[in-house]
Design a protein around this nucleic acid. Sequence first.
DNA 1: TATAAGAAATAGACAGTGCTCAATTTGTGA
DNA 2: TCACAAATTGAGCACTGTCTATTTCTTATA
Lengths: 210, 210
Amino acid sequence: MTYIHFMGRRSDHSRAELEELILSTGSTLIAETGLAGFSAREVARRIGYSIGTIHNVFGTADRLVAAINTRSFKDWAASLRERLNAVGPDGDRIAALVDGYFGFAREHPHLWTAIFDHRLPPDGGLTEADETGRALLTRIVVEEIARAVGCEVDDEVAALSRSLIATVHGHCSFAISGAWSLMGEAAPEAAALARVREALSAWDVCLTQS
Amino acid sequence: MTYIHFMGRRSDHSRAELEELILSTGSTLIAETGLAGFSAREVARRIGYSIGTIHNVFGTADRLVAAINTRSFKDWAASLRERLNAVGPDGDRIAALVDGYFGFAREHPHLWTAIFDHRLPPDGGLTEADETGRALLTRIVVEEIARAVGCEVDDEVAALSRSLIATVHGHCSFAISGAWSLMGEAAPEAAALARVREALSAWDVCLTQS
DNA sequence: TATAAGAAATAGACAGTGCTCAATTTGTGA
DNA sequence: TCACAAATTGAGCACTGTCTATTTCTTATA
């Protein structure tokens, strides 16, 4: 008859609540200031806990950022699913996919940028939970590409999907960082979509011939 | 009859020599430790000058990193030109271009990563000299793509070129960051090349039809 | 009920960082 | 020889992440 839930000294927040509080506050901070302006101390200040508490819960500032990025990944995947549901089974799902990729980056440029700018120290890789959370987005795309080319999900389709993700990512990356506008490019998203369509039609031709 | 050249106190290094010294030492430091391990103080330590000197010459650590990245860009462009010369006018110049893009990233992963991870503070953009130095790489690609599709260099070809750069960049980015190997992708460079070839042949079809 | 045990939270020290600016060289032209 | 002015220094400031000793509170036991 033991209560394992409230073992700490503060009853303000349970461990889970504290994790959530740190995570969402950290996410807001990155959204506001970008990864460069992020600091674990500032997160502690905002939630009214000391810096040591952050360390207790997340171990390292890097691991906290990794957790925040995983959360961004999940939100991103969710918004992608929403768009796919919105266009329906007969809509232009490929366009929805590309627009979903760009959409999250445009709406949350700092969060999106943080995902790809952050590097973990060489020793400590991602958590199992991080890995699976991030794999969601890839899985959605793989499923959609399989649907688009009318195949089962196999290694070949998965490889094509990753290549298409990389293609769209490159365009989005330049668009968000601003390197693109300096070069006078007007419609990076349209270009990305064009490249994807070309690859898909090349794949169809390949299938027909074999 | 006034000599304006030697106004300083140290004859160890002229201003230009000092700039070069800081730049090359900083470049080596990033190549060794990555952008995260970079510090202006460490550069000062290594060249035997004080931290103040770095600030006199480059103003800000961010501007120093920007200058280092511009230097990387130039080296990158030079190695691209070399590869193009090596394959000659009748070789597979498109493959050489893609391989050159990946090649620099593979040989100098930290320098390459630093180029795209570094963000200047919102107020201070890049120098004129930085801009032109970085534009070199794009120009090389635009010229080659014009050659490949047998056109003059115009806005359309330039837009296509930027889109192809983005495509290759996306693949290279995932390959270097390691996100790729986690997904089990074996040949990111081959995939990038395939996407580029598809885009070029789609362009050819487009030209033939019009 | 009183007390021992133990975990959460904290405070604060440590070693770094970038940036500033008064004080200090020191080469040079007068 | 001297004075000037540019180049260089480095202590000081406000930060940062990380870590350990300490406090504070809850729970379980005697």
